[in-house]
Computed example of a mutant assay.
Amino acid sequence: MIKVLGLGDNVVDKYMHIRTMYPGGNALNIAATAQIMGEQAAYLGMFGDDDAGMHVYDTIRKMGIDTLHCRFKKGENGYAEVKLVDGDRTFIGSNQGGVSKEYPLDLTEIDYAYIAQYDLCHTSIFSYTEPYLERLSQMTTFLSMDFSNRYDDEYLKANCPYIDCAAISCGNASKEKVEEEIKKIVSYGCRHIVIATRGSKGAVVYVDGKIYEQSPCLIKAVDTMAAGDSFIASFLIHYLAGMKDVREFPADSGKNGITTISEYKDLCVRSSLYQAAIFASQQCQKDGSFGYGKKF
């Protein structure tokens, strides 16, 4: 079992055309995906005391996600306003994170000790966790961060040296353009993996010097909200689980079958990408990021 912690942003996605709000937010979506996959999941973030914040908090508690170190402030929870066009979600407004932006998490030594228990800690450009990345990189086994499509070079230079995995959203960009972005992120210090999602074009993924391309599992989507988050979480969980207890074969193990870590890693990456593509397509059959809608 992989222990996964989402650190930072949570929101409600307000579907304005049906007046229904769904729990979401990049960091929370990673934790929720882990819980849905049957892993041990936790979330550490800030909640507002309004109806939106209570709905997100109550939902993830019911799901079984650990919320032991969460914070609560008087004010608006983060929200985004959304509309659907043929199943494809489009953002039309937000409050920029609400209390999460207004009140940074201000992590304590007790928080760091708690975070250190997890195999994967995931945060995002929407989480206002940049001041803590250096310390997190020292305390965590594997630190990933989603930059969405909101980053610039200076932001990458400042934050890439502390993370094991960077995730970026590349829309309809060509593979050549995506590979340029990946090389840049690696040159700025990202230590292990870069995941570039491209919607219906699939994903381009870098792992320790090697580029992989994964086609999507195309279906008639009910809602594409958080499809990229689902893909990222599923890939990392499968990959980290597969690599967790790898041991090199003895030098005289022979030449039959898979006998080196590099050969096994290649198989593990490809298998994890395949499973992530399937999982993400399944999540597109749900309303919102992972369901649990409530009228507002």
Rank of each mutant, 00 (worst) to 15 (best):
Cys165Thr: 14
Gly24Val: 04
Lys177Trp: 04
Thr140Gln: 08
Ser271Leu: 11
Gly78Asn: 07
Leu105Arg: 06
Ile92Phe: 08
Glu102Gln: 14
Val207Ser: 09
Thr108Asn: 07
Phe142Met: 09
Tyr162Ser: 05
Leu84Arg: 05
Leu68Gln: 09
Ala233Arg: 10
Cys160Glu: 07
Ser144Gly: 12
Arg135Val: 13
Ala32Thr: 12
Met145Ile: 07
Ser230Phe: 07
Ser100Pro: 01
Tyr132Gln: 12
Pro131Gly: 09
Lys210Asp: 08
Glu109Asp: 15
Ala80Asp: 05
Lys14Ser: 10
Val194Ile: 14
Gly189Asp: 06
Gln40Gly: 02
Phe72Glu: 04
Lys286Glu: 11
Ser127Pro: 10
Phe249Arg: 01
Gln138Arg: 15
Ser281Gln: 08
Gly171Thr: 08
Tyr132Pro: 01
Leu120Lys: 07
Leu136Ala: 08
Gly97Leu: 01
Ser230Met: 06
Cys160Trp: 04
Arg135Gln: 15
Gly242Val: 03
Asp208Ala: 15
Ala41Pro: 09
Glu181Cys: 13
Ser262Ile: 02
His17Ser: 10
Gly257Asp: 04
Ala251Glu: 02
Lys183Pro: 03
Gly199Gln: 08
Leu84Ala: 07
Leu120Glu: 06
Met139Gln: 15
Ala241Glu: 06
Leu105Asp: 01
Glu81Asn: 11
Ser174Tyr: 03
Ser148Met: 08
Asp146Val: 07
Arg61Ile: 14
Gly199Ser: 15
Gly8Asp: 04
Gly93Phe: 03
Cys268Trp: 00
Asp146Ala: 10
Ile182Gly: 08
Ala116Gly: 13
Arg150Tyr: 14
Gly98Val: 00
Asp49Tyr: 01
Phe249His: 01
Asp208Met: 14
Tyr118Ser: 03
Glu109Gly: 07
Asp9Trp: 00
Tyr162Thr: 05
Asp164Ala: 10
Asn256Tyr: 00
Val269Glu: 09
Ile163Lys: 06
His192Arg: 14
Cys190Ala: 14
Leu156Trp: 00
Thr20Ile: 02
Lys83Trp: 03
Cys70Thr: 13
